[in-house]
Simulated scan of single mutants.
Amino acid sequence: MVHQVTRFSDAFSAWENWNLTDFDSKSECLLAFKQALQQVEPELAAVVSYHIEQASALLAETHQLVGPTGETNELYTAGRGVAVVIQDALQQQAKHAVVAQLTAALIAGNTVILCSDDDELSQALESAYVQSSLPTHLAQFVALDAYHQLLDSDVRSLAYVGSHEVEKTINRLLVQRSGAIVSLTSETDLVNIPVAHDPHLALRFITERTRTINITAVGGNATLLELGSETH
């Protein structure tokens, strides 16, 4: 248990810096990860590339909102925190789904702990991660059964690849938790893997935030608050 608590603590510390990193820098780091993965798993590298490209259209830009009293209002996205990805299936399509979820969670600004007994996949991903420019502890790779202990920590997103039956069990575990509501992104159709092909997958791992900046002397454009004038 102590070991998993330490992993979560390391992941949370890494998230605080990663979440403040601008989108272009995150994208560059993940492209380096994709290039390293390309050497051993080109099909999986293509999955990484796809979700970086899709996330760029969704998350890269800050949106300007209306400022009724002269202020600047901005809408932007941020990662939720530590995401746990659970892989409970070993076929090739499951590997694609796992890589899609891992990439979407990372590009959205989260850190990831992958719980899997697929040693071949974990080793390929970890090797590519070490060769890339991704920060330390941003992605961690542990055994499948570690997720039971990790759910006792303050994880903010959960992704699952496997069967409907285990998905239901995980859902019940999430309902019993106290604290923040944890979103669950599941891939249980391991033939068509629709979630892995979803161009909006990154949106399942973000939270929306607004930033208001007063750009006039007293909190806005005071002339817009005028109650009357000589013509009234």
Rank of each mutant, 00 (worst) to 15 (best):
L150N: 03
Q87V: 03
S25I: 14
Q54A: 15
L224F: 09
V175M: 11
A124R: 04
H232R: 11
D117S: 10
T69I: 10
V82Q: 00
V47P: 00
A105Q: 06
V155H: 03
C29P: 02
T72C: 06
Q54E: 08
A55Q: 05
Q64G: 08
R177E: 08
V47L: 04
T6M: 13
Y76A: 01
E167P: 00
P68F: 04
A139I: 05
T231G: 07
N192Q: 08
F8Q: 02
L134K: 00
T62N: 14
G219A: 03
V84E: 01
I170F: 00
A202F: 07
L106N: 00
D145P: 06
L203G: 06
L224G: 11
V40H: 08
H51G: 05
R177N: 05
P68E: 08
H96D: 07
E187Q: 14
L144Q: 11
L227D: 13
F205T: 03
P199L: 13
D118Y: 03
I52V: 14
E226N: 12
A89W: 08
D22F: 09
V218M: 14
L173C: 07
A217P: 03
S122M: 15
G219R: 05
T62W: 11
P194C: 03
I170E: 00
S163K: 01
P135A: 02
R7Q: 09
S122L: 12
E74D: 07
S27Y: 08
L201M: 07
R80T: 11
N73K: 06
G81T: 01
A14I: 03
A139M: 11
L44Y: 04
A108V: 04
I181S: 13
E16C: 13
A146C: 11
L158M: 08
N110I: 06
E28C: 12
G162I: 03
L75A: 10
L134C: 09
V191C: 00
D119L: 13
L102H: 04
L151I: 09
H63N: 07
L20N: 10
A14L: 09
I86D: 00
L144S: 09
P194W: 04
S116K: 01
S178N: 13
G219F: 01
V142R: 02
Q176M: 10
Q93E: 10
P194N: 03
A55K: 03
V191L: 06
A128S: 08
I206S: 01
E167F: 02
V99I: 03
R211S: 11
H3G: 05
N214H: 09
D145H: 14
L151R: 05
D24E: 14
G228C: 10
L173M: 12
N110V: 02
L37W: 04
M1C: 12
I193F: 03
E120R: 12
S9K: 10
N221L: 15
H200D: 14
L30P: 00
Q91C: 15
Y76G: 01
A139R: 00
Q38T: 14
E28S: 14
H232F: 12
D24M: 11
E43L: 15
A202L: 06
